[in-house]
Computed example of a mutant assay.
Amino acid sequence: MPPLPYAENALEPVISAQTVSFHYGKHHRGYFDNLAKLTPNTPFAGQSLEALIVATYGVPEHEAVFNNAAQAWNHNFYWQSLSPSPTRPSEALNAAIVRDFGSVDQLTSKLAAVSASQFGSGWGWLVAQHGKLAVIKTGNADTPLAHGLVPLLTVDVWEHAYYLQYQNRRPEYLEHVTAKLINWDFASTNFARMSA
């Protein structure tokens, strides 16, 4: 389980230190702890999260491994998708955003709206496929990796990501996160890696 890329209070006031502490220290850690119990003495022992996700997606008898590996990976990606300091998309990513969404503001508004519309638990994503950008949502532990898409950034819409602070105001949480905390440096690096 990788360390947080910033202090627990670094995302305040948008995401409280208490929320980060519970989210990272209990929920995120729980997925790694579960994997540590599920994979020893199996063909999955020692495999990367990405390999586990690909090998177990859609296989009913390995659903628990998939759910925990995907949630562990999704959370690793989520913490990297947030930045306590303002960032901007690279020139290349910005050009793709303008081409596919009109502007960064239009993209973040769409990301917030699509993520808010996820029924129940899940994730909102900016992804790339065949050189085009798209905003999608996935339910529960599902992840773009399982569908051949390249994730650039994500926002978490499981209740544990916001409930301590925002209660049932998921759209408000998403509006603040997408407007103030998106790590465009991380998204730009992912976009450049895909384009290389």
Results as ranks from 00 to 15, higher is better:
Val65Asn: 03
His147Thr: 04
Leu174Asp: 10
Phe66Pro: 02
Tyr163Ile: 13
Gln106Val: 01
Trp158Gln: 06
Asn74Arg: 11
Pro89Tyr: 06
Pro86Cys: 00
Gln18Glu: 15
Arg170Ile: 07
Val54Glu: 11
Thr19Tyr: 01
Phe77Ala: 03
Thr19Arg: 06
Ser117Thr: 00
Ser103Gln: 11
Asn34Arg: 11
Gln80Gly: 01
Phe44Ala: 10
Tyr78His: 10
Pro84Ile: 01
Gln118Lys: 14
Pro84Trp: 01
His62Cys: 02
Ser195Arg: 14
Ala45Phe: 06
Val104His: 02
Tyr24Glu: 05
Ala196Gln: 13
Leu38Asp: 04
Pro84Val: 01
Asp33Leu: 13
Phe32Pro: 05
His27Gly: 00
Glu8Lys: 11
Ala96Glu: 06
Ala113Lys: 13
Trp79Val: 03
Gly122Asp: 10
Asp185His: 11
Gly124Phe: 08
Pro5Asp: 02
Leu107Cys: 06
Arg170Ser: 10
Arg170Glu: 10
Ser85Lys: 11
Phe66Ser: 02
Ala69Ser: 03
Thr143Val: 08
Thr56Asn: 05
Pro144Gln: 07
Lys26Glu: 12
Gln47Leu: 15
Val104Lys: 10
Pro3Arg: 10
Asp105Phe: 01
Trp158Gly: 01
Tyr162Phe: 15
Asn168Gln: 14
Ala17Leu: 00
Pro86Val: 02
Gln118Cys: 12
Trp125Gly: 07
Leu149Asp: 10
Leu164Thr: 03
Pro144Phe: 06
Ala55Cys: 06
Ala70Pro: 06
Tyr163Asp: 08
Val59Asn: 06
Val150Gly: 00
Pro13Glu: 08
Val150Met: 09
Leu126Asn: 07
Asp185Ser: 13
Ala51Ser: 15
Leu164Arg: 13
Arg99Met: 07
Ile182Phe: 13
Ser85Thr: 12
Val54Asp: 09
Val14Tyr: 14
Val135Leu: 03
Leu4Gly: 07
Ala113Asp: 12
Lys180His: 15
Leu82Ala: 06
Gln165Gly: 01
Lys110Ala: 12
Ala70Thr: 05
Gly120Ser: 11
Val135Gln: 04
Pro13Met: 07
Tyr166Phe: 13
Ile53Asp: 08
Asn76Gln: 14
Asn183Val: 11
Ser85Ile: 01
Ala141Trp: 02
Met1Glu: 10
Tyr57Gln: 03
Gly25Asp: 06
Pro86Ser: 07
Leu52Lys: 10
Phe66Ala: 03
Leu152Phe: 10
Thr154Lys: 02
Ser48Glu: 08
Pro89Lys: 05
Asn68Thr: 01
Ala10Trp: 09
Trp158Thr: 07
Gln18Val: 07
Asp185Arg: 13
His75Gln: 13
Gly102His: 05
Asn140Asp: 11
His75Asn: 13
Gln167Tyr: 12
Met194Pro: 00
Gln167Cys: 01
Asn190Thr: 03
Ala36Pro: 02
Ala112Met: 07
Glu159Lys: 11
Leu111Ala: 07
Thr143Met: 02
Met1Cys: 01
Met194Asp: 11
Ile97Ala: 12
Asn68Glu: 11
His147Pro: 00
Glu159Asn: 10
Arg29Cys: 05
Trp79Asn: 04
Ala69His: 04
Arg88Pro: 00
Gly120Val: 08
His75Glu: 15
Gln165Phe: 04
Thr138Cys: 08
Ser121Asn: 13
Ser115Glu: 09
Ser81Lys: 02
Pro144Trp: 05
Ser195Asp: 11
